[in-house]
Design a protein around this nucleic acid. Sequence first.
RNA 1: GGAGAGGUGGCUGAGUGGUUGAAAGCGGCUCCCUGCUAAGGAGUUACAGGAGGUAACUUCUGUCGAGGGUUCGAAUCCCUCCCUCUCCGCCA
Length: 426
Amino acid sequence: MIDQRLLRNNPALIEEGLKSRGMKIDLGPLQKYCKELKELEEKRNLLQAQGNSIGKEVGQKIKQGFSQKSEEISNLRIKGNQIKKQVGLIEEEEKSITKKLNEQILCLPNLPEEDSLQGESEKDNKEIRRWGNPISGDHLKEHWEIANQLKLWDSERSSLIAKSRFVTLFNQAAKLERSLINFMLDLHVKKGYLEVLPPALVNTASLTGSGQLPKFAEESFKCADDDLWLTPTAEVPLTSLHRGEIIPSELLPLKYVAYSPCFRREAGSYGRDTRGLIRLHQFNKVELYFFSNPDKSKEALEQITLDAESVLQELELPYRVIQLCSGDLGFSAKKTYDLEVWLPGANAYREISSCSNCGDFQARRSQIRTKDNNKKNILLHTLNGSGLAIGRTMAAILENGQQSDGSINLPKALIPYFGSSKLKPE
RNA sequence: GGAGAGGUGGCUGAGUGGUUGAAAGCGGCUCCCUGCUAAGGAGUUACAGGAGGUAACUUCUGUCGAGGGUUCGAAUCCCUCCCUCUCCGCCA
């Protein structure tokens, strides 16, 4: 969420930030709401102070022996009632303005980092570095072709069970999925992350806190009879892990790693990536998360990105690191690096991880704070990164490890988890 | 899902309408005493937000699970919800 103080005092700065995301927005009305709210609050505090002193006065008078029915006391009562009415009116007004304000302010995205990479879209993103030696050739198959030959999964049966864009893994693929989850969790725990297994269902407050609601309701699956949604990413429960807390600065950064299934409706992507493991309604993901001191979050983003990269390196998968330009940033992000893995069958790099510094955006929505050097409460910064998306990792392993005999060579790091160095035709 | 009990400051726990933001104890902090430690003594100590001040601080508001209500005044009375514990039912 955008800082209301900034909105009151320096809306031009916000407009500039939003413009670099390609948004043109008149903040005038919002600014007006904020100012009105501030004035109403001051007015209400004043009245409440008066009301409080009347209450005290009545108490004192009664102690002195005045009767409940004496004129002095009934006069005070009348005065108190008047004040109460006025306060009630102000509160109603505050509520209605707050509602209007929230409808809009909760839909404003985060502002890009001050010295951010400017650009309109994907085409303006910048490659930061590459790793590994990508293989290529016309004979190389896409991962769903490999899957068919090795009988790794079955999409028709998945439609029978659920619908399209779900997958049911069999045999070697099921085990490989499980191996990848364990491998990634172990790797990150070794680097100092605390392992968490959060609920897969989250409430509306959690989704609002991390930025998915209210704007992207159509992207998540909602339970009909409860205030619960299927989590679209472990970023949501991890943010809410500390919602409303003030975390002592000496405990920061808090580093978490969580495995979770992720559920996305993928509304509006009907034609895209219909085959294979790239775009599904349900997929598994291992997520990295930082609660950071505000002045350390820039370094933290580099760290979380390196930690995500280390998974690809251990798995011997070539990749590149892309910095997203301002126009391509996600809703909650200030700065983002995407990791793109090489898929030789598709002859392309595909996103497999997204590492973002959200600054105080989610922290403000979720009221997660820490103390600064003067022991003042300040919002902390949150960061998240996939480490990694499991399905896409499996696709990359299949495509990169394919051999002419139809088998798949697995990365050495997986052998202890999978129990074999190859996927073999049945 | 049903029945009962409960949710108070960092912790334990008292408080059922009136200067109660809240007794007491523990813990924390400061000072004193003491060769060191232990013990002892004196004092101090909730949190959040706003306004003012460079600051120490001053001041206002709110907060006793959450949200409403009654009242001049609510931790205390009423309603709704959430959570915890015990028992029963169901279930992996």
